[in-house]
Design a protein around this nucleic acid. Sequence first.
DNA 1: TTGCACAATGTTAACGGTAACATCATCACA
DNA 2: TGTGATGATGTTACCGTTAACATTGTGCAA
Lengths: 318, 318
Amino acid sequence: MVNLSDVARKAHVSKMTVSRVINHPDQVSPELMTLVQQAIEAVGYVPNQVARALVNQRHYVIRFLLLEDVATVEPNYAKLLIRLAHNLQQKGYTLEISLDITAETQSIDGIIVSGWRQEDLLKLQTLDVPVILYGAAPPNSPLSSVDVDNQAGIEKATEYMWRQGYRDIYYIGLSLDLPFAKQREAGYRAVMAQKGGRVNVYQTENHAHLADTLLTNLMHNFELPTAIVCATDRIALGVLRAVQRVYHIPRECGVIGFDGVFIDQLTQPQLTTVRQPFALIAEKIVAQIISQIESENTLEVENTSILPDIVVRETTNL
Amino acid sequence: MVNLSDVARKAHVSKMTVSRVINHPDQVSPELMTLVQQAIEAVGYVPNQVARALVNQRHYVIRFLLLEDVATVEPNYAKLLIRLAHNLQQKGYTLEISLDITAETQSIDGIIVSGWRQEDLLKLQTLDVPVILYGAAPPNSPLSSVDVDNQAGIEKATEYMWRQGYRDIYYIGLSLDLPFAKQREAGYRAVMAQKGGRVNVYQTENHAHLADTLLTNLMHNFELPTAIVCATDRIALGVLRAVQRVYHIPRECGVIGFDGVFIDQLTQPQLTTVRQPFALIAEKIVAQIISQIESENTLEVENTSILPDIVVRETTNL
DNA sequence: TTGCACAATGTTAACGGTAACATCATCACA
DNA sequence: TGTGATGATGTTACCGTTAACATTGTGCAA
């Protein structure tokens, strides 16, 4: 392996000069600068990150800790993961994947956590590296977080349906005791309260066929045109299937989902949805964790919500 | 950070003795052994992997190189990735993600490549670490590979449909010039040749709505009961949608897909499919790459095909 | 008793970098 | 002309670990 000494020998300077050319270019004279750069080229030198990590006590590695149950992993993660890897790479970091919250933290600089539950937070707080949560942290949590703005997302969706002209608007939520599920429901309620529309909230588990069953019973009460705001695309898929057996989409019934990852492109007609802006989310997560790492100890908690956009397709154009 | 010296001081031995307790337990006397182990416990020592990596020229890191176009990333990868991370962790390795084939290889021990094309192979061959391809390598390639047995998978599927009693069997393939697409088609042809059935091969791009359109035109030729063997679940989704508008599934038409990741669970009725055995695939990949790393230079090319299983659901029970 | 093999432990140097300090030449200014 | 500030470069030591070699002590055969 080509190392600093090889470059130094080639350029007839000391190792330190070479090191400085790389890390503190302002501290070397222009002549040596070019001389050393040529030597680096000539011998094909590439800095050894491991040695660098050892002496700097920095590793240039961020861990993505996935706590979600492996069986239920959503395709979401692939998208987020890829964006994260890409953004980190640009900043000179690499992304490592772990499923184990108890894994050692001494060869990483920070952790991005996804799929966490309330009960994981205590352990996460005690770690000795910066932690960023994907998904909104509870109030007063000492951990920073980045999340899509779930409430605003459903607000946008509900308002959009109202603006399209639908007045009979249903919300099919998730029967899950998790913050994001409640926030989405709150978004629907907020808009309906403001508009003075009738509130119709139902809940189901996150399965298309359960949503299908629910809607099959529900849709006889519709006062057309009716809109159905769904907490997830998966629910929307089932809703769509049930409703289109009886009504015309979108003339009689409009449907809008939430997530915008994969499922929305599989439906027929194609689903209008609130899309999680993974590119932005990843960007923000990366910016935040790197700033925490590089600011050393000034631990400033930051909770970011990112406003999602509506992707209009074929299920909502009244 | 607690290090070897701290343990050594606590146990009143030299650093080397502590190191040996960890790496070569057979070389230390039982008394010191327990003494040192207690000291390790007492001070909470955890070996520093970075220092270890530096001196051993080993990093205990495997890179997952994803060359697929980011936009088309299938949820497949999330499943595979998680299995890989899990298996590697058990062997003391960590998994890192990269999208960049040109990234440095000096702080990793091996690479697992996914989504590669023919034109990537040359560059991959020149890397100075072991490389395992996910997806069958071309004949005589110097790179090892692990893949699902695509041909055998579709053979199984076709035979299964024949056994169910369908005699009019169609194959809807992928219009892609990639080995796996050809192998799947070959599987269908092989079985039909053997059974003496009429060969009906059509191709489409990997989109549900294109498959829908294709089938809408095609299905008037069916001699019921007809089976449709699909190259992917995505195609199967479109096929199912088109066919069920006219025929009863599975009494008049049976449909079987390939992949078994995610999509198959979204259809109504639920899709019978050939499932990629990601647990096995990941296991095999990990075993293979670690064996290559640890055997140093005895570079033995190994191409493994893993036989997939059929997951019988609701679209094939004639 | 002597010497030697062998097992248990310690010492040293290295892996490839960088921070901190030391050295040296240059130059401005009193 | 001497002094000290300044900038460019070199020297040293260290990050935490392990391989290789050195040392020590023990038992056993000659």
